[in-house]
Design a protein around this nucleic acid. Structure first.
Length: 681
DNA sequence: AGTCGCAATATTTTT
DNA sequence: TATTGCGACT
């Protein structure tokens, strides 16, 4: 049975309408949400009328599992926990007549980019006039929709650093019409091919609920309580979605302004401060006893926050008392850093009685963990990465899924192109010719035979065999995967000669396993895109959703800070806390950006329970960075470095001893004239 | 003309 | 690691 303190109990038993619970790091935030859900169910609320909204599927399922562990499982069976996006997707599917988008195909970031490239490539959109990359246009458009601002304002924010002057206004007016055309084209392509992107999920539901009384009535019967985790990272679009529920359900929101790290997605932690004005009939409560970390770790975290110009009014004090001082490891390069970490883990594992799962390694970026992963592989330390490429985003998986997609939605041109060009001998040009023919007939008449009739030779036969493998097993998704894989295996191996056996082949049994949990092709495709799990490093598992782990192998977790929300570990390494990384040199535009970087570091530091080891390198891959992106040339990067004025008594400094050192050349190129020993005289 | 294979290159953060 | 560009091959 879980034990709760007084503040936690008050929140759990809250009797008013809406509540915002401000809960600092390690104060039992998740535990309290679990307690709240369990309390509601025990006091008679039907589990299916409670919706838990979280940031990742992982935390959603963790909460649901924990609730089930606390109360009799049958009462909690129908409890639903999901991300905002996945929830909207469920609503769209479950209420097809309400939202009118039930049979659309959800597209991922790659597909969005392909589509935007198509939009830019299409004639008379005037793309040539703006030298803005398609990805940048997508980011801008998404930012605008997530913050609910207009195009002009979004251009000002994203392309002109928010500057307000007549010169900027003129420049904005120059690009705005072109961007408008391109975005309209992008939207048109989406509708034509029945696609929804991530933002559409929220908008389709939000728009309908906000303007349709009838829709609100229907949903008011479905939900009584909405529990929102990580409230500080919700953006205006998510608020827009929640607003209609203010009158039809009770909101229980939990967050911490000091942990807001998603402003690039439109989140604004100040929303947390204005909660009471915004939501009528609401109250605010606080949790501030930290149960996670020792005081030394909190002292450092508190210090970091106090150095901020923003007042967070937060000083965590440890319920557990004193422990070890945080360590700063000064390594010269990334390999030394990686080796130090590997050796420490192995030593603690052998002599200290620790398990691998007692370690958590946090990085500002995915990219930076590559050398570490190499060292772990070499030293045979089992690990998993959080925050990498999604399983279903891997190229070889997308190849296979493309056939599912066209059968599920024959208008899906991106999938058709991938499908057709997968076959050896068919390139982009021939594929788009075939596609033209395919789209010109009634979707009902598309069959394997039709495909082989328009595509001559063995290529056509191959295309047909793939098509038939899936279409003849439409109602047995698992069977469809295994039949299709049988047909494709040879060509897949051919396409990925370098890493087929070692890396890719093993993904297909996993895909099959995953498929077994879905009864329709559409569900299979969509859920896969919504599920943010990685397939790197061995134990494949799609957490959160349907697939349970095959076997829970003890492993170290390597995560980006952004994906580490809610995680904690006995020993925590924070990688490369060097200038140009904390804050990131990409974020030197404004004070707001720098302060967000500070919060990123704060989130990282507060994950540690007993040991916090901060590493930094004097010479890392990130240490040299082109100055071209820098906005303010005069800004001295070191002046912004968060650990610059770190009081000595808060940490212990260390350097790796007798450790591995990668053979090194001189630090910088010397402009040596190459000498081939040839006399040209 | 269309497709393939090699080499170079550049990587914040996520649903 | 995935994408892009270029030269070569059918």
């Amino acid at each position: 049975m879980e034990q709760y303190n007084k503040e936690q109990k008050e929140a759990i038993n809250f009797k008013g309408k809406h509540l915002l619970l401000l809960a600092g790091a390690g104060t039992g935030k998740t535990k309290t949400i679990v307690g709240r859900a369990a309390h509601l169910i025990e006091s008679g609320v039907l589990a299916e009328k409670i919706q838990i909204l979280t940031f990742t599927k992982r935390s959603a399922s963790e909460i649901v599992e924990r609730v089930k562990a606390v109360i009799p499982e049958k009462n909690a069976q129908a409890l639903n926990g999901s991300t905002f996006h996945s929830w909207c997707n469920q609503l769209i599917t479950n209420f097809p007549n309400l939202f009118g988008a039930a049979n659309f195909t959800l597209i991922d970031a790659d597909d969005q980019l392909s589509l935007m490239k198509m939009a830019c490539g299409n004639k008379n959109t005037g793309y040539g006039k703006v030298r803005i990359k398609p990805q940048k246009i997508l980011d801008l458009f998404s930012f605008a929709r997530n913050t609910r601002i207009n195009l002009t304002a979004a251009i000002r924010m994203q392309l002109f650093k928010g500057k307000v002057d007549s010169e900027t206004d003129e420049e904005i007016e120059e690009v705005r019409p072109v961007l408008e055309l391109l975005i309209r084209e992008y939207q048109k392509l989406k509708i034509e091919q029945k696609y929804l992107d991530y933002d559409d999920l929220l908008l389709v539901v939000g728009n309908r609920l906000n303007k349709d009384e009838e829709a609100r009535k229907i949903l008011s019967k479905a939900y009584e309580h909405i529990l929102v985790d990580e409230m500080q990272d919700t953006n205006p679009l998510q608020w827009f979605l929640l607003a209609p529920f203010e009158n039809i359900a009770k909101l229980f929101c939990v967050g911490d302004d000091a942990q807001s790290i998603y402003s690039f997605r439109g989140a604004d932690f100040k929303n947390v401060h204005s909660f009471k004005e915004r939501v009528v009939n609401s109250e605010i409560k606080k949790l501030d006893k930290n149960y996670r970390s020792t005081q030394e770790i909190l002292d450092l975290s508190n210090w970091l926050l106090e150095k901020s110009p923003i007042i967070y009014n937060k000083k965590l004090s440890s319920h557990r008392g004193a422990g070890k001082k945080p360590v700063i490891l000064n390594a010269t390069n990334q390999f030394e850093e990686a080796n130090y970490i590997a050796e420490k883990i192995l030593k603690d594992f052998r002599d200290g009685g620790k398990r691998f799962s007692d370690f958590l390694i946090l990085s500002r970026s995915q990219y930076y963990t590559k050398p570490l992963q190499a060292v772990f592989l070499q030293k045979k330390i089992p690990y998993e990465t959080y925050g990498g490429r999604k399983f279903l985003e891997a190229a070889h998986i997308k190849d296979v899924v493309a056939i599912f997609r066209v059968i599920n939605n024959p208008l899906d041109q991106i999938a058709w192109m991938r499908y057709l060009t997968f076959v050896h001998g068919i390139g982009e040009v021939r594929a788009s010719n075939y596609l033209h023919k395919i789209l010109s007939i009634d979707p009902e008449d598309i069959t394997g035979d039709f495909l082989s009739s328009i595509i001559p030779g063995p290529e056509g036969e191959k295309i047909k065999s793939y098509y038939d493998a899936v279409s003849s097993n439409k109602h047995n998704v698992k069977q469809a995967v295994s039949k299709l894989y049988e047909e494709m295996e040879f060509d897949l191996a051919l396409k990925y000669p370098k890493d087929w056996i070692e890396k890719r082949k093993g993904d297909f049994p996993v895909l099959e396993m995953l498929a077994a949990h879905y009864s329709t092709l559409g569900e299979f495709i969509t859920e896969g895109i919504l599920d943010n799990s990685t397939g790197l490093g061995g134990t494949h598992m799609l957490e959160g959703s349907k697939i349970k782990t095959t076997e829970k192998r003890d492993h170290v977790i390597i995560s980006t800070v952004h994906s580490a929300k809610g995680l904690e570990a006995d020993v925590c390494f924070v990688l490369n806390v060097s200038p140009k990384t904390y804050p990131s040199s990409y974020s030197l535009g404004s004070n707001e950006e720098i302060e967000e970087e500070r919060r990123v570091l704060y989130v990282a530091l507060t994950r540690a329970k007993n040991e916090l080891i901060i590493t930094r390198t004097t010479d890392s891959l990130n240490a040299y960075h082109s100055d071209t992106d820098r906005v303010d040339e005069n800004m001295d990067i070191n002046s912004a470095y968060f650990l610059e004025e770190l009081p000595e008594n808060l940490v212990v400094q260390e350097t790796p001893q007798g450790g591995y050192r990668k053979p090194r050349d001189t630090e910088k190129p010397n402009n040596i004239d190459l000498d081939f020993g040839f006399d040209f005289s």
